[in-house]
Design a protein around this nucleic acid. Structure first.
Lengths: 349, 349
DNA sequence: CTGAAAGCGCTTACAG
DNA sequence: CTGAAAGCGCTTACAG
């Protein structure tokens, strides 16, 4: 493998100059820069990263820890993030090192990685309230960014969509269509995204002067089976008059709900309107539903580049507060929502 | 951060001796080793990996590339492997660096990683026949191991289960129970595991003297929806008399089949027997099916440690041929299989 | 059993 | 605009 010195020897220059030329230092003459570049290319030169790291103290690598305790099966989304993130980091010349959090102590995996490797920073996902990982990394002064946020006044860099707003907007669309009995099938309890959506749903219902009956707001694994089960139970009216509209926190839930509505011999949107939040995952396209699905849409992929860039910028010394992104979801009205049915036009008691 | 020299100074030793003590060189006296260890512990010493890598040329890191073209949604299994692998590598003091294969050229991602990082080796999964990645890595002399194998006489280190045998054994169990019309719902075409299972199924059917009707061997995404769809179509008898038994290449397919059988008003195992291959994924337990599911079982997790160890050993200079593992799946008979129904006891024409 | 020395391949003040 | 030199923190022949 060619080294800096090899290039220098071939060109009658010093390694120092070659290094400066390759790293685009302004003081190098254009002519020298060009000669160096060409020779480097010709010799197939690749900088030895270990040597660079040793002297700069920069790794060019960041870490991410997977929690095995998490519901991997439901977590279609995690892989999407992993893939997008890795690509976005590559564009910034940074690699992603993956580790597993096997145990009870969520901080252990981080400690191990920090001991073993030179890592410039970390990416966290699904933060819990007062997340111990956040506490630990902050204590050690390690740069990190978070996908999601555990509190509204988070002081770390994060990327999140406005979960409160998307839930509220869904309600508003449906109430404008005359719906009064609206069910919300939410994700599992404890995740901050689910909490925000719940709050947005309840706030918008309250603002519309509509009560929410016990059981019309559920928390469950975001799977097709859960959607099917919940919808069937609600449509049976066991917990009061059946809803005329469903808002689903995920597309998989919506699949289940559609299925249940059909199995009950009902029609969408004539008898029941259905909406969902769409993460834009591959192979799960809202347009392919029949009828096509009205959604709030925010591609999960959109989180990746902002997260990657925020982390790199943070490592570069940027102000954490300037690296916070709150994205709005897009409301897309399709064929699965329509006016409330005549006979269903009364609110829950 | 404490360095070797710091420890040496504190102890009145040379950095060389400290290095040898810490790396368990036999010539170091027990007394010195002990003193060094204690001081290192006390000072919170961590070897600088970049320095070690620079001088040894060893990375302590291996790479894995995710194909984005793959069917991520169906690929629950990938995350399981990723998690297990990362843990197994950690046990061998090795990190996993992840990258994404974005484009048409499957080799590009490997080339980029090799240029950017010092990496000791690679792990590949889902090899295709004459996989270009295999060709490329072999050409460059980079150590690699494969999950699966693209040909029976593969000369690289691999881990795979005996897919031929598990399909054949499933057939044998069912024919022993008197079944003559057996359908096989396989994974998507083109994957080598699916090809081997197909061959095993056909061989065992042939050996039992049973014909396989057109449509009784399907290739599809291993999802619940696909299982449901395929089973409904087969049970409707559109492609000949309905099967009395289904063998499913995955648990998700089996979920769909069970669902379809029930929707047709049939009972398991009285009217229809169902088997599946069980990768032992979390949250998808064959025992929780009702009736509990008869399976061939081979936990996907079992692949991780052998793969990790094979790669580390290969890097250490072991013979590739000695690092090939072929595991048998375990046959577990539960309640979803029973004698063929009286009136269904005739083979397909 | 231990030490002095060279070297891995870079970067970056310091000089000129 | 370029070079000589020091140094990042290790490892490992070579001596003793």
């Amino acid at each position: 493998m060619a080294t800096l010195k090899d290039i220098a020897d071939h060109l009658g220059l010093s390694p120092a100059t070659v290094s400066r030329a390759l790293n685009d230092f302004p003081e190098v003459s254009e002519k020298t820069r060009k000669r160096v570049r060409e020779m480097a290319e010709q010799m197939g030169y690749r900088a030895n990263r270990s040597a660079q790291r040793l002297v700069t103290g920069r790794a060019g690598m960041v870490g991410m820890i997977v929690k095995t305790s998490a519901d991997l099966r439901a977590d279609q989304t995690f892989l999407e993030i992993l893939v997008g993130l890795s690509a976005a980091l590559a564009a910034r010349d940074t690699d992603l090192v993956l580790a597993v959090d096997q145990g009870r102590d969520p901080v252990k995996a981080y400690r191990r990685m920090l001991d073993r490797d030179l890592l410039d920073g970390f990416i966290l996902n699904a933060p819990a309230p007062n997340d111990p990982r956040v506490v630990f990394l902050r204590e050690r002064g390690i740069p990190f960014v978070v996908h999601g946020r555990d509190r509204l006044d988070a002081d770390y860099p994060f990327f999140t969509i406005d979960n409160f707003a998307l839930a509220a907007e869904s309600v508003q669309l449906l109430t404008a269509l005359g719906h009064k009995r609206i069910a919300y099938l939410n994700g599992a309890e404890g995740y901050s995204y689910a909490t925000r959506r719940r709050d947005g749903f309840l706030a918008a219902m309250a603002e519309a002067g509509l009560p929410v009956v016990e059981g019309a707001l559920t928390h469950d694994t975001p799977s097709e089976a859960a959607g099917y089960r919940q919808a069937l139970s609600l449509l049976a009216g066991q917990r009061g008059a059946p809803p005329t509209a469903f808002i689903c926190s995920s597309m998989l839930l919506a699949e289940g709900v559609m299925h249940a509505v059909r199995d009950r011999g009902l029609s969408v949107p004539r008898d029941v309107s259905i909406m969902a939040h769409d993460d834009s995952l591959p192979l799960l396209d809202a347009i392919n539903f029949s009828p096509s699905l009205t959604v709030t849409r925010a591609p999960l992929r959109d989180a990746c580049a902002p997260l990657a860039n925020a982390l790199i910028d943070l490592i570069g010394g940027a102000d954490p507060r300037s690296l916070q992104t709150l994205n709005r979801a897009e409301l897309i009205v399709r064929d699965s929502t329509g006016p409330a049915p005549d006979q269903g036009d009364t609110a829950w008691p």
